[in-house]
Design a protein around this nucleic acid. Structure first.
Lengths: 193, 193
DNA sequence: TTAATTTTGGAACGTTCATTTCAAATAAAA
DNA sequence: TTTTATTTGAAATGAACGTTCCAAAATTAA
């Protein structure tokens, strides 16, 4: 019966995500989004309710897309320690790919919006929890494989890595020199050995 | 001859900085600034030209105020390694002081505005350079005192610490649990020993 | 006390903001 | 082909934005 949605929703989300990633939530206007997608205002509001919801959907898609990309790369790792190093390699690749790196959308979002918007804060805490669990499992396996030292618990090292990754993503915004990024990565990894 | 500026410029900058720190540049309106300072719009524009300049002045004041505060604390350090640990203690104190920590104004600014505004980007690169020099000297002294290992150069460790500090400040936005923050700090410091 | 100079208060500027409205175009099902 | 549901286009909404304007108040030097 109805006329069906003609645009590619995934593509639109990707286009909008690029704008949000580049300018942040507050500096992005609906006009920017209209321009980036080629869609009409009405279509956007019809399909995504409002700017806030659209941003939340971009965040969620970004998270799962990043996680999938990470999983793909990590599946090639020979062991857990190698996997942790590969996480940083993925980010290094991302940072030097762009002339001006935009950092991590989620880290930027935390910096811009945490504690101001409950649905965003909920997302951020959930993301943090997922990240910590993921890293803890990785460290735990590495410790069982005796590739990672047991000076600290897997929980503590996960927290350390979580914090280090955020710093790494922030640093990449201004520093895009590969040797420097590799050096930071190696120093972080060294701690675990 | 003239009527002289009646308000306390330092106080106004502090009040405005608090708003910018809380909401970020783009989400802060001139009305917010009027409300926070109690000044009239005209007075603000008379004294600070525009929002952008006002923000830049807040950034600079924030930087020097933070550096002064850090210097004060670090002067009580018994050695260079202790001084590095004290940096993190200053941040931990800052993080748990506020119910909802806002992170570092400069880190947040990098996340929101880097590569979009040349005067901001200039400030950020200058700040980064200052930070790295400061940390490199600290590490270098620590290595001479044989308190910090020489597995990596002082430059490399400075870069590592710089990245770690940014991550630490980001992490503190969502995590305000002192033991967790202490754990991250200790893991970072451990790398140097 | 007067003159000179600046800060104020408050309104107004034109623009841009996110969002809404609604008729016209569209397309699948009947 | 007609019906039905939905997407579109384009304009309009009112509120908020950063900034400007100007007369009135204020203050100090002469």
């Amino acid at each position: 019966m109805p006329k069906v949605e003609t645009f590619n929703r995934d593509l639109v989300i990707e286009q909008v995500t690029n704008v949000f990633h580049d300018k942040g939530f507050n500096a992005t206007s609906m006009q920017d989004i209209v321009d980036a997608t080629g869609l009409n205002r009405s279509s956007i509001y019809n399909s995504f309710e409002n700017k806030h919801n659209l941003f939340l959907e971009c965040l969620k898609t970004y998270k799962s897309r990043s996680n999938n990309h990470l999983s793909d790369k990590l599946s090639t790792a020979s062991n857990s320690l190698d996997a942790i190093a590969l996480i940083f390699d993925v980010y290094i690749e991302e940072i030097i790919k762009n002339v001006h790196d935009k950092g991590c959308l989620i880290v930027n979002c935390a910096s811009e919006m945490a504690n101001h918007d409950v649905s965003i804060t909920d997302f951020l805490f959930k993301n943090q929890s997922d990240m910590l669990t993921f890293l803890e499992n990785l460290v735990s396996k590495g410790q069982k494989e005796q590739l990672i030292n047991t000076n600290k618990s897997s929980k503590e090292y996960a927290l350390y890595l979580y914090s280090s990754i955020q710093g790494f993503r922030m640093t990449g915004i201004l520093i895009s020199d590969k040797p420097e990024l590799e050096s930071i990565k190696n120093t972080i990894i060294q701690t675990l050995i």
